[in-house]
Amino acid sequence: MIARLLHGVPRHAFALLAAVLAVLVAAPVFANDYVLTILILILYSAYAGQAWNILMGFAGQLSLGHALYVGLGAYVTAALYVHFGIGPWVGMPLAILISVACGAIIGFLAFRFGVGGVYFAILTIAFSEFTRIGFDHIDWVGGSSGLFLPVANYTRNDILLLRGQPVMFYYVILALTAVAFVICHGLLRSRVGYYWQAIREDEPAARALGINTFRYKMIAIVISAGMTAPAGVFYAFYYNNLFPEQTFFILRSIEIMLGPVIGGVGTLFGPVIGAFLLTGLSEALQELLTHVGLETPGAKRVFYGVCLLLVVMILPNGIWPPIARLLRLERRDPET
């Protein structure tokens, strides 16, 4: 299995990846709490972006409603914890299951009725907005006034209940991101991955090659939704508060896709690079603005917008492909 995953990966690419991972693992040793917080933010968006990328980047179906799965993951585990004291790792499978079910329903409706392209995107918005307003009215999860997890000053890290200090959260999200990366790598190399790309490139042609496009699009949305849910679990236990207004909001969905779009849709490294650049740069900008005494709430978002505009206009495939060429990381011949 491992041998298969490594098949055809250039050796220096592997070395580079190992080096990056080593730096990230060692980061808490020399990073202060502020830097750690930013790294957590970066890894979080890299993870969520990676999950979104499966649906859009691999299978070509534009989802603008991924906040739905984040929100479901967050609310399910948080509610179980608040009401019954059930830990997040126990709640997570259920959260994933519910996300998967929602993804399956949306996918079934959309793909069975042939809703594609921008119409599919609008459908996903409709579903996530629908859920957002719905959650406003579920008192069990606090409705529009929010759901709060008990906060205390934790001195000990309790990994089982996900209660503790930033360092613990850092390693959790790092592990999630690494696992997501490996899963995506494996998917891309599998039969499913090839079929997704064929569907993304030209659906009728894919069908003529014997691909049941409905089935493979369903697989894509189900995996993508299921992988997004843990991001919500992390969100809930890291921030300790949930508001439908924020968790399900359409801007959340847009933020999820910014990383991959800027990094490179459909590439493995795109979501990661995009998250590092976007979050890293915008935090640096905010720091700079605070230093010169210009604290404005919208500055970060304007920066997001400008980044997105520039990348979409100048590098329609994102910034990863040119970097990959520079580092000579294209796939090699399996025989050599």
Binding site: A198, E201, A205
Partner: peptide, 10 residues
């Protein structure tokens, strides 16, 4: 197909 449609990005 009459109008060729290979997967252009692959």
């Amino acid at each position: 197909f009459q109008i060729v449609r290979p997967f252009p990005g692959l």
